Simulated assay, not measured.
Amino acid sequence: MRDRRLVQVASVLARPRASKLHRASVSETSRRAWSEDRTVLFGIVHVIRNGLRWRNAPAEYGPHKTLHNWFARGSLAKIG
Rank of each mutant, 00 (worst) to 15 (best):
R2P: 08
R2F: 12
R2C: 09
R4W: 06
R5H: 11
V7E: 12
Q8R: 14
Q8I: 13
V9N: 03
V9Y: 02
A10Q: 02
L13R: 07
L13V: 07
S19E: 01
L21Y: 03
H22Q: 00
R23A: 03
R23Y: 10
R23S: 02
A24Y: 12
A24S: 01
A24Q: 09
S25W: 02
S25F: 11
V26F: 10
S27E: 10
S27H: 06
E28Q: 14
E28R: 15
R32D: 02
R32G: 08
W34F: 01
W34M: 00
D37T: 14
R38Y: 06
R38A: 05
R38F: 03
R38C: 04
T39P: 00
V40W: 04
F42M: 15
F42G: 12
I44K: 00
I44Y: 04
I44A: 02
V45F: 11
V45C: 12
V47W: 01
I48P: 00
R49I: 15
R49Y: 12
G51P: 05
L52K: 08
R53G: 05
R55D: 12
N56M: 12
N56K: 10
A57G: 05
P58H: 07
A59E: 08
A59G: 10
E60M: 09
E60Y: 10
Y61N: 03
G62C: 06
G62V: 08
G62D: 06
H64P: 14
H64C: 13
K65N: 14
T66S: 05
H68E: 13
N69C: 15
N69E: 12
A72L: 14
R73I: 12
S75Q: 14
S75P: 00
S75F: 14
L76C: 11
L76W: 08
A77R: 04
A77E: 05
A77T: 03
K78I: 10
K78W: 09
G80K: 05
G80D: 10
G80A: 10
